[in-house]
Design a protein around this nucleic acid. Structure first.
Lengths: 331, 331
DNA sequence: TTTTCCCCCGCAAACGTTTTCGCAATCAAT
DNA sequence: ATTGATTGCGAAAACGTTTGCGGGGGAAAA
């Protein structure tokens, strides 16, 4: 049980005051080069590690970011978290990861936890699309920066980093047109969530330019539903010559149907999706052509924003991460 | 900037001492029912939230578990973390999640971080299969319980929770025999890692009972490699009538080859794998028959062990999570 | 010589708790 | 009435830092 060594230990050992040790360790200009050297050396030798709790108590700050997501078991949030973790580590920060399970109550509780732990900042993808910002504002009043990402509140006065949802849909539509697809099954997510609405609108608009193409719009709340939708569509008299899947989850359902019906891709039909990572699209043969909206990249962006905020750039901004087409062989 | 209210605020308000307030709040027997009530009520009213840093400084404890995994972007660790998070929340604990990237140096640094943050306990899946336990022991000397899970050190004097690796392989072998498979391609992971060795040994042993079956053993370090191995095997003159995949990663590679070669499952060939979750096996049509070794369940088990430890059961134990066969339609 | 200035450094308070010790009051037992 | 135990509470130290203020000493300016 090697007792933790403290500033006091060092000061006693060197016959100088605690304050001098403290200042020396953090390069305060008041301290002479000579004593600074001395202190530094001894601290290293004694394996001194500052007590983060004492520091936080004194300064009312911490080296922890809170990060709240609907669920951690999700590729997208996953890669987001990884990215933030990588960057945070570089500046000596740790992550307090909390999942809200899409429940506003749990979310509120998590925010409370962040307050309790005096986190230095919060990154959050909101659960409910509530317009009630009060629970978030409490944090900012205490000087805690809060960055919304992906699923963000529908108000202007906050910091957001988002994916280019419309843009991704447009890119997909363009790719389909370029291939001359004429009979397209487009499967979107649950009609109520905002991301579905955005992508659907943008997709349909972009498709308008191609008057003669036949468009079938469908909504799937789960992988299972998109499986059924796809199956039905391809069992009909006239098969689509392309499928657009709004998300990874939908893509997996569609692909199961493809396997069941032994449909040849891309000869019988083309596939294109919007995906968060390369994982799902690379699972199939041929590999799926997709529009990437990277959680990882978004994480990097969010970290950048929170760093900027903490170093003084406290104005509100919305950052958008561009998406890009990744060519597979499925279209 | 609503200043945080403290014990002092409450005490002043009630004209009693800080110590009394502190004791009242935590139900100390010294305090009369009457004042306890009073204090409780006012605390609730004033929305009092204890300062965790002050508490930790004073008690040298925290309400945080450290959890160190090779990578967080991995289904298995993922579900493990989810399970631990769920349970921890119930007892008011948070999680400090760190990834080592399989680098012993980073791992050491992460362990240091756990010490720095005075975590109440550590759950770790070790990076290197090093037998050097010193860096871990330092924690236990400080009274911090450390539970190893999944990838554990090869020594007895520590707490472990593991998957039934041998068991899973035996179950798979048995299932293959029951179906009367005679020409089996078995793909394992990288030959150096311990889990590969365990599973391979158990699998081969279990297969011995079926003398006339032809067994092809292969090793794949990645999804790509298992793709190549499978392709080659099925392009040969005599095709296997079943494939056994040791892990999800290997399964994905094999399934890509199946799609490429348009092999009919289970008519042309049967598939069975060992998987951490239902996610990957359910991605295909037909769904894959697999042996489940659940990260989620393992997380629950690990939490149970660390709770027990903290409540006094400090002896060393190794817990094994049984695995079970989940029937799909691929065999 | 005196004054002014700057360079280094120490004192002590403060952050919000927990906990040891002790004290006064009450009550039961002798 | 004296002792002894018990009950309910307060004073104060401690946890390890940071930081405002002030002071001693030496050098430069007067």
């Amino acid at each position: 049980m090697s007792a933790k060594i403290t500033l006091k230990d060092i000061s006693r050992n060197l016959n100088i005051s605690i304050s001098t040790v403290s200042r020396a360790l953090k390069g305060h200009p008041d301290i002479s080069e000579e004593t600074r050297e001395k202190v530094m050396r001894l601290a290293a030798l004694m394996d001194y590690e500052p007590n983060t709790y004492a520091i936080s108590l004194r300064t009312n700050k911490s080296n922890i970011f809170g990060i709240i997501v609907p669920e951690i078991s999700n590729f997208f949030y996953h890669s987001f978290i990884s990215a933030v973790e990588e960057e945070s580590k570089k500046i000596g920060f740790s992550l307090l990861i909390l999942q809200s399970g899409n429940d506003p109550l749990v979310e509120a509780e998590n925010i409370r936890l962040c307050r309790l732990n005096r986190v230095a900042g919060v990154l959050i993808s909101v659960a409910a699309s509530s317009k009630d910002m009060s629970r978030y504002q409490k944090l900012e009043e205490n000087g805690v920066p809060i960055i919304f990402f992906d699923k963000v509140p529908d108000v202007d006065a906050c910091n957001k980093v988002c994916l280019a949802d419309e843009d991704a849909a447009v890119l997909a539509a363009t790719a389909l047109q370029k291939k001359g697809k004429q009979h397209i099954l487009a499967i979107f997510g649950h009609p109520d969530i905002s991301i579905t609405q955005k992508r659907k609108l943008a997709f349909i608009n972009a498709m308008e330019k191609n008057k003669q193409a036949k468009l079938i719009i469908a909504h799937a709340g789960s992988s299972r539903e998109s499986f059924e939708i796809t199956k039905t569509a391809f069992l009909a008299s006239q098969q689509p010559d392309a499928v657009f899947c709004m998300s990874d989850e939908i893509l997996t359902g569609t692909m199961k149907a493809m396997q069941l019906l032994k449909i040849n891709i891309p000869n019988d039909t083309g596939i294109i999706s919007i995906s968060n990572d390369d994982f799902i699209p690379h699972l199939y043969e041929p590999e799926i052509t997709y529009i990437e909206t990277s959680g990882y990249q978004l994480g990097k962006l969010a970290f950048e924003r929170i760093s900027d905020y903490m170093s003084g750039k406290k104005f509100y901004r919305e950052l958008i991460l561009p998406s890009k087409l990744v060519e597979g062989n499925s279209l």
